[in-house]
Design a protein around this nucleic acid. Sequence first.
RNA 1: GGGGGCGUGGUGUAGUGGUCAAACAUGCGGCCCUGUCAAGGCCGAGACCGCGGGUUCAACUCCCGUCGCUCCCGCCA
Length: 439
Amino acid sequence: MERTLIKDLMGKIGQQVKIQGWLQILRDQKSMQFLVLRDRTGLVQITLWKKGNPELAEKISTLGVESALTVFGKVVENEVVKLGGIEIQLENLKVEGNAEAPLPFEPFGETLPDQDYRLDWRYLDLRRQRNRLIFEVQTTLEEGMREYWIQHNFIEMHSPKTMGTPSESGAELFEIKYFDRTAYLAQSPQFYKQMAMAAGYENVFEIGPVFRADPSFTSRHMTEFTGVDMEMSWIDDHDDVMKFMENWLAFSFQAVKDKHNEEIKTLLGTEMSVPSVPFPRMTMAEAYQVLKSMDYKLPPEKKGDLDPGAERALGNYIKEKYDNDFVFVTDWPATVRPFYHMRHEDNPTLTKSFDLLGKGLEVTTGAQREHRYDVLAAQALEKGLTLPPIQNYLNYFRYGCPPHGGFGLGLSRLLMVLLDLPNIREAVYLFRGPNRLEP
RNA sequence: GGGGGCGUGGUGUAGUGGUCAAACAUGCGGCCCUGUCAAGGCCGAGACCGCGGGUUCAACUCCCGUCGCUCCCGCCA
């Protein structure tokens, strides 16, 4: 017999059905048993008159909530039933996976345990529909991103995650044993996607894991996360990257809205909005003016940079003034940017770079890259790097590399912004942090 | 790495020097209940109050250390 999904039961009134799901509630009375079964599409009540099948009733009495069940019965209409006005008259039941009692916690209880404890029992926490929805949204979001890229002739890359030499900055890399030598986990596909530019791919993207050995204890950091990276060739400057990016992002958000708008409202209590294009832009210098006008005081050591408080303040300002959740902050000082960001011709202290803030949270860093070998090498030296460790990278620019730029985006951070999630641990399937390697 | 906060039955909380051999809710077990539906009623089990040391006649409560969690900052996506 074929399985019927709970949402389709209305069309099967009077028929025998097989449904499969988890026992959410068992009300075991003297003469009647009521089971509420949950599958990914909804809840339904299942009813058994005990005297009609004492053996089955006995079996049901031993069930723990959250057991995985296959249920056979007849769908009947019953106005008395508050759960959709229908119920299933139970005929047979197979226990596929019994749940021990008590559960570590009640996923559907009125109060939930601390997040850290729920992380220990992540699969139970994920049974809540609102958590399932987060990853349905993520799936649609990535689908939208891919669709837009493919429409624009991008090639998908899968770059290695093990590296022989530290690339951008040694401090934040995880060292791993690699036979008789040391290797490093990639903290960005940066160099590899630029290599694709040198290879003449013109447009590439990658969605893959990146690793950061930062001992960060915040609601928005992870030691391993999914990076969304792209790089495009033959641009005039970083604004070409921003133009592409805002349209790409709006397209992907629209895909999410088309598919999940109602559920996001009901399960997450948030109204999602598709940002209007173009996103507001402000240079770093303008951002400082705005902060000054808001009386936001940056710590003096943050010269030329923003701190999280400043980012939140700018997010609020943009929301109020332009009614947009996003803002590009451009033209960051070279002092706070990596050596490979291209600098302005008329002002070499500033880079052709940008951050994208979403609701005041940094979700992206991007730039036009320096593709001229001599300039790039000079900038590396100026930053205090030595050339031999990055010579393989520098070589990409020796035999005809086109002008190019791109960005890296944190997938879970974008989900936080999209769904108004307060903590990145909710926006990722399994969180990894300095003290969290399990499950 | 720096700073703040927290750590009490399975879970969420209350209790902040003696009245606590620790309370409430929920969950769990048992019994009762002609259809329940956030079901309800009764009974029961379950915590040496994170760990170690100290102060005190007396510590869940104060102090020190330690571990864990959490938030903010640094770092970044």
